[in-house]
Design a protein around this nucleic acid. Structure first.
Lengths: 201, 201
DNA sequence: GACAACATACCAACTGGTCGGTATTTATGC
DNA sequence: GCATAAATACCGACCAGTTGGTATGTTGTC
């Protein structure tokens, strides 16, 4: 395994545990077992590593969700609910192990580095997009609910990100699981209604 | 105005804009117009300032919500919905001006400083608690919905925190407003149902 | 004259980043 | 097939600036 991927791998762990700013280049190098020279050979700056880490995160999580079993339902609504269940199952173990790299990093970086912010948004928006087809199919099957697939997909991500914040603050994954249960209930309620209601977008 | 409160006031702005770690003591002093000696006279460490800033945040936002007009509805459900509307109205202007100090800070601090983490949780949980009475009254009036007041109150906070993350990532407050609209719809759907449904907690 | 509220000067540790150098792989020419 | 040239990967000492924090004042006030 090359020094570059080793650095990226430890970056995911370190940044999720301590944040981007508090994670120093020296720490990263020590944890990855590489020298500073190697670091700046592969990344022209710490910021560049942040961008690469966000992209690396998109790839690894993308592969995880792509092969996850929640896709194997015939009904689109069941696929959405199974996705939410899957997200809930991921919440286990230590907090840095299940929380989101880009959600953590963007809070620090959005005002400091446009590159990192954009990479985080690409990651979040890209993942949300993988839900849109199922949401659109559910709307087609169960009727227009007055929400767009894109907007509802982003809402699920917001709720999950917020659930992570509460889990960190309380130092208790349980509160995140509660929130994801509420999210599931929301989707159930939304599609259980008959057809479209009169309501502004 | 004393140096202490001046430091706390600028800390709210600086930390919301750049994060806790990236905000240096020197910057804080310069922005507040005080010397480093004054800083360490009032706070024994940077961490102590972080804790004090979270408490200061609780006080200032507590006063804002206490006097906000959303309490002036006869119906408890209307009070909840008006609260959510109020949160939505607060989303305007620059991103650091409407996002949450403790939600930002806890992401960096939860693994580094127990004191800051606990102070952030006190702030979030304390604010959520102000919603519980209205939620309990709504449940009493509209029937048991299978959710506890505490859990639903925390869910609203998670969603709003997540909405801020998305707004920061996209660099666009609009996505946060969308999320808050979804939250409002959720509460409406939840209490529009008749009585309790058969469903696990 | 005691005590709180500041100011100034200073410090060791650490920060991200540079730079000259070397080992290893890969491409090229004959 | 093989020498050689040229990238690429990596090393580790070094650097200037910044970090949080301290030690020693100087005020003003009761």
């Amino acid at each position: 395994m090359t020094a570059r991927t080793r650095l990226l791998d430890v970056a995911l762990d370190e940044i999720r545990a301590k944040g981007y700013c508090a994670t120093s280049v020296d720490e990263l190098c020590a944890a990855a077992g590489v020298t500073k020279g190697a670091f700046f050979h592969h990344f022209k700056s710490k910021e560049a590593l942040g961008v690469a880490a966000a992209d690396h995160w998109s790839e690894t999580t993308g592969a995880l969700f792509e092969t996850a079993p929640y896709h194997h339902h015939d009904d689109p609504l069941q696929r959405i609910l199974a996705y939410i269940e899957f997200r809930k199952e991921l919440v286990s173990g230590e907090i840095p192990d299940f929380t989101c790299l880009v959600g953590t990093m963007v809070q620090e970086a959005y005002g400091v580095s446009d590159g990192i912010r954009d990479a985080c948004w690409r990651s979040i928006a890209g993942h949300a997009q993988t839900l849109e087809a199922d949401i659109a199919a559910a709307i087609k099957k169960y009727g227009d609910k007055g929400v767009t697939p894109k907007s509802l997909a982003l809402y699920t991500q917001a709720t999950i990100q917020g659930a992570f914040i509460l889990a960190k603050a309380k130092n208790d994954p349980g509160v995140a699981i509660d929130c994801i249960n509420h999210l599931k209930r929301h989707v159930e309620l939304l599609f259980k209604r008959e057809g479209r209601e009169a309501r502004k977008p």
